[in-house]
Amino acid sequence: MGMCFFVKRKLLDFAEGDIPECQAVQVRAHLESCPACRGRLAEIRRGLQAAGLHRETQMSEDFWKKFDVELQKKIFERECERFPRTGRRFVWVASVWRPALIALPVLVIMFAVATHLRVFSPAAREEALVRDAAWLMDEASDEQGTLSSDDDITADIEILYLADPSAFRENG
């Protein structure tokens, strides 16, 4: 009885030939004297033989084409669920226009800095002062009615310069 318990556990491996020789000898010896275990072994051998009858279910190529299309559709739907429409669009834009999106704010900042430097630099401020002075002089001359053209203004400045050059040097 104890041997039957041992052999029963080994019968499948024995039938498949997947058992060490020392154990196979024991099983063979027991089988000669035990009709119950011989019956079990016969059932197992028939079961293994029956498993060999199984044919893989063959489906048509059309079935697999349809299957692939359906699968792709479902994968796309799942992707849409994971990334909602707006999110998808953003992802797409970001991937295609990413360099432009990064460059644009940088360019804006650089332009702003350049403009700031140009407007508020010492040279620009000095230039603006000279322009304002010329405009004021022009206005004053217009009020007096003595100067009416650019030639007259130039002539007047030349006279002023000849009279006192140091004043011009101090004002730049």
């Binding site: 059932e43 028939r46 079961g47 029956a50």
Partner: peptide
């Protein structure tokens, strides 16, 4: 192993008459 053993034995029992005829 126990699942496989029981399954094989059951199928062998059911398929017995058909297998004997084939072999």
């Amino acid at each position: 192993k126990v699942h496989i053993f029981r399954a094989v034995r059951h199928i062998g029992r059911i398929m017995g008459p058909y297998m004997d005829g084939r072999s």
